[in-house]
């Protein structure tokens, strides 16, 4: 125990030690300056669940895009999703063995007519991922724009934009997406479909961003910016949105995982991706009758859907904890 009240001891302390305002150079143990973004990244990289999930997601993405190639670029997997191959195993069962590890001729098995199922699942994963990320990005842009405009300007524009949002919310997403999806399917391509999905899934984000902007616009640094004559759009883009980034990023991640499920549901119902192109949902739909006879035709796309949706959710969780450490459990 140290007796802190010993006057002799205190007299020796130099007066400068009692300076309240020590300059940052003297106080900080490190020269490194952390911005808020860097602090968030630091916490994110320490979130074990999110890092494992991120690794898995990167692995799945790499696997899907390098194995069968993308567009004109060929992949390392010799087979494609169109050709028919002679059936190797009984009923086209998977040749994948884990111990000793070997891929065999058709690791995920073959369809009833002899197509390579690995190539099909990889193509489906490519399409599902592309759709999910496009939807995530586009819906985030739309939602952020509408939410920020409504939240910052208030008044009539807010009333109009939020009623439009309500209108989109009261129509069941799946019904709207089915109608739009069929139209998009006719126009062509998975990106048209993704665009249509984005048009129906921005609503939740728009409401969240509006709420966030409503509270941020009352903060003093916004008042300070207005007081020097900053224009409204500059305030929104430079001052408000960077501070709402946490909400936006976290919800964009969750949008992505829900987009995968919506796309799957649509394709399963026959409104999404059309053959000969394929998606994970379509694969399940086509092979639902084979569950008892050729279960792998059902399981492989199922595992990928659940896997992707789970890891994306985990990443979202990690991001939320990183942006708001107070929410973490002790």
């Amino acid at each position: 125990m140290t007796n802190t009240n010993d006057p002799a001891e205190l007299d020796e302390v130099h007066e400068a030690d009692y300076e309240i305002e020590s300059m940052p150079d003297e106080t900080s143990t490190t020269d490194k300056s952390y911005s808020q973004g860097q602090l968030v990244l630091r916490r994110f990289f320490r979130h074990r669940g999110a890092m494992v999930s991120l690794t898995i997601l990167v692995f799945i993405t790499l696997l899907a895009f390098t194995s069968i190639g993308f567009g004109p670029i060929p992949g390392w997997w010799g087979k494609n999703h169109i050709d028919l191959y002679p059936i190797v195993e009984v009923a086209g069962a998977p040749t994948l063995t884990l111990w000793p590890f070997s891929l065999g001729e058709h690791p995920f098995g073959q369809t009833t007519i002899g197509k390579d199922y690995f190539a099909l699942v990889m193509l489906g994963t490519q399409n599902s991922l592309a759709i999910a990320f496009t939807v995530g990005l586009a819906a985030t842009l739309i939602g952020t724009f509408i939410g920020a405009t409504a939240g910052y300007f208030r008044g009539l524009s807010e009333a109009f934009l939020m009623r439009v949002t309500d209108l989109f919310i009261i129509i069941p997403t799946l019904v709207l997406a089915a109608v739009l999806g069929r139209m998009a399917g006719n126009v062509g391509g998975i990106f048209a479909l993704a665009g249509m999905l984005a048009l129906v899934s921005w609503t939740g984000l728009a409401r969240l961003v509006r709420g966030e902007v409503l509270s941020l616009r009352e903060r003093e640094f916004v008042a300070a910016a207005r007081a020097v004559g900053t224009s409204p759009w500059r305030i929104i883009v430079r001052h408000i949105l960077p501070n709402a980034l946490g909400t936006i990023i976290v919800n964009a991640t969750l949008l992505i995982s829900s987009a995968i499920l919506v796309e799957t549901a649509l394709s399963y119902l026959g409104f999404g991706v059309r053959p000969p192109n394929t998606s994970l949902g379509l694969l399940i739909s086509e092979n639902q009758n084979a569950l008892s006879t050729r279960p792998w035709l059902f399981w492989w796309p199922g595992v990928f859907i659940v896997g992707i949706a789970l890891v994306v959710n985990f990443i979202g969780d990690g991001l939320r904890d990183a942006f708001d450490p107070r929410q973490q459990m002790d």
């Binding site: 300056s33 911005s35 808020q36 973004g37 903060r219 003093e220 640094f221 008042a223 300070a224 910016a225 007081a227 020097v228 004559g229 900053t230 224009s231 500059r234 001052h239 960077p242 501070n243």
Partner: peptide, 27 residues
Amino acid sequence: VIFQDPAASLNPRFPIGDVIAEPLSVH
């Protein structure tokens, strides 16, 4: 203008240099 709470009146996402230069770049 100077506000009461410096923690609230400085944009937490801006480094100090940008905070002070903001009025200059606005004008």
